[in-house]
Design a protein around this nucleic acid. Structure first.
Length: 261
DNA sequence: ATGTCACAAACTTTGTGA
């Protein structure tokens, strides 16, 4: 039996968030942490500081937008950036990285936002999700347990937004986006449901208008596990406290605990 | 109040993306 704690966190700039990330690694002690929106080039990635805490890292980023990484203290092998036929806008962006950590194939993904339903960024988002599903299907065929983690920029159900009426006609809740999540579920991935804290399952709260303290959030950061891993889940929660205090990200980490056979 | 933040432009402020 082996315990494994996997987490995902959109940090909204690793440079801006590094003090909080270092604190959080110390307190939450994940074995594997997937990061999104690092906004860090590979040259600027703070690998040495993370290594001091015992975490190996794999990162992909090229500038002030996007950027993903995987930190692991249980091994980090076969690192791969992007995926087969990943769409771009127009060129591929730095939105996906994968590595094998203690036998688990871990993907850290940052799905395009989409902006508005009539935007070319929305069509790009749907194309990106479709290509992701195809790549995930190929990955699953290899047989290794898969943890697909990240900021999906989709709230899978109406229960995952504070007020569905506010989102009518918006991205993040549209039928095609939700169907794209459904496609991943149909590939036998489980969208792990975090324990509701304060009655809320949310992982993201806009910085504006005091939305965090008003409870106006969304669950858009997901951990999707292949069947063997899903069966091994012992706990899952959103670390809402990480959204509080000084200089927080607008996202909170999602933490999943597993007991592997 | 579309009320915040992070970033990079060539600025001591504005645009952009989220």
């Amino acid at each position: 039996m082996g315990q494994l704690r996997i987490a995902t966190w959109n940090v909204n700039s690793l440079a801006a968030r590094m003090p909080r990330v270092l604190d959080w690694l110390g307190s939450a002690a994940p074995d594997v942490l997937c990061l999104q929106e690092t906004k860090a080039t590979e040259a600027a990635f703070p690998g040495a500081a993370l290594e001091e805490l015992g975490y190996a890292s794999a990162a992909d980023g090229d500038g002030p937008y996007n950027g993903v990484a995987i930190l692991s203290r249980v091994g980090l092998e076969d690192v791969s950036s992007g995926f087969l036929d990943e769409p771009g806008f127009p060129d591929p962006e730095r939105r996906s990285i994968a590595a094998t950590c203690r036998g688990v194939r871990v993907w850290s993904v940052y799905v395009p936002n989409g902006r508005t339903l009539d935007s070319p960024h929305y069509a790009y988002k749907l194309a990106w999700l479709e290509a992701l599903a195809a790549a995930v299907e190929e990955q699953l065929a290899l047989g290794a347990p898969l943890a697909l983690c990240g900021d999906f920029n989709v709230a899978p159900t109406d229960a995952d937004v504070w007020d569905p009426s506010v989102f009518v006609g918006s991205t993040h809740v549209s039928r095609p986006e939700r169907e794209a999540i459904g496609t991943l579920v149909a590939l036998d991935l489980t969208d792990v449901q975090p324990r509701a804290l304060k009655g809320e399952p949310y992982t993201y709260w806009d910085y504006r208008a005091g939305m965090f303290h008003k409870g106006e959030g969304m669950r858009i950061d997901l951990v999707m596990l292949s069947s063997a891993l899903a069966e091994a889940v012992t706990d899952a929660y959103v670390d809402r406290d990480a959204r509080k205090g000084s200089k927080p990200s607008d996202h909170a980490p999602v933490v999943v605990d597993l007991t592997l056979p």
